[in-house]
Nucleic acid binder design. Sequence first.
DNA 1: CTAGGATCCTGTCAGC
DNA 2: TGCTGACAGGATCCTA
Length: 305
Amino acid sequence: MPELPEVETIRRGLSQFIVKKKLTGTEILCDKSFQGGPVAGIVNRVRRFGKALIIDLDNQKSLMIHLRMTGQLIYDGEGRERYAAGHPSDNFVAALPNKQTRVILHFDAGTLYFNDQRKFGFIKVLPTAEVEHDPFIKKLAPEPWDMSADNLYAKLQRHKHSCIKPTILDQTIICGLGNIYADESLFQARIHPERKCGTITRTEVARLLAAAKDVMEKSITSGGSTMATYVKADGEKGDYLEKFAQVFHRDGKPCLVCGTTIIKFKVAGRGTHICPHCQRPPLSEAEASACDSSDKIPQKEPTNA
DNA sequence: CTAGGATCCTGTCAGC
DNA sequence: TGCTGACAGGATCCTA
């Protein structure tokens, strides 16, 4: 799915097109993709909590939308405009609804299609007052901009035996990072994704937090990333990967910092990209126990040729 | 409590 | 061409 920058890009785009418009009804093409009863009303605003999008109506009802891995939102204006976010494919120009359309939201002056290939995403109707008490929303950690390095360090200490990468993908630890930005942040902070959280120094945590903010800010500024899958809410392709990605999907290519070949491997089941020179591998148990200097960053020389 | 793996679902792509 | 297995920008559930 889109990560935080993509969802924020979608939020900004969608706000322009549906705020003040009237949602007149819904068509559910896939029961799994929609929770709740019939809904209608004027759109007051479009909010975002982490990677979840919230459309508030003027009658105390809200729609919560989570795109997960393959969701996309396509807004058809009054004939001319089509604004899309999510899986670009041909859905942006093809006739809708199509095979992947799960829910259709009818507005008085347009139509919003929720497409989702893998059906992991969903739209849920709930009272506006309950949005912030929703189990998913409630559990979300602060976003990097609202979190101190000390706070993050303390949280990582509670998972000291876990690898750093899957831990920062946990939205209850830090909110907003997904697979791309986790890889990019770790690269920028020069931290190997398999380092145990307990070995990450305060200095490194500060660097990681700064990197997370930096890569996501840059992506939001450029309108979100694209991997042939995600485009801006106005249908233009975001170009984060081309412009800013240092490691993601660059395996086999030279590191832009040192020239070492970027490699891809799996960490906790997720595809992971690193520069093996810039991101030194973690120490082995034996090496770690031989090193008792706590202010020293435990790293060893790269082993790649 | 943490840690790791399986799982939801469909489509695409590489390799026979 | 057709088949098969691997994989995919997320998050939850189950087990140890």
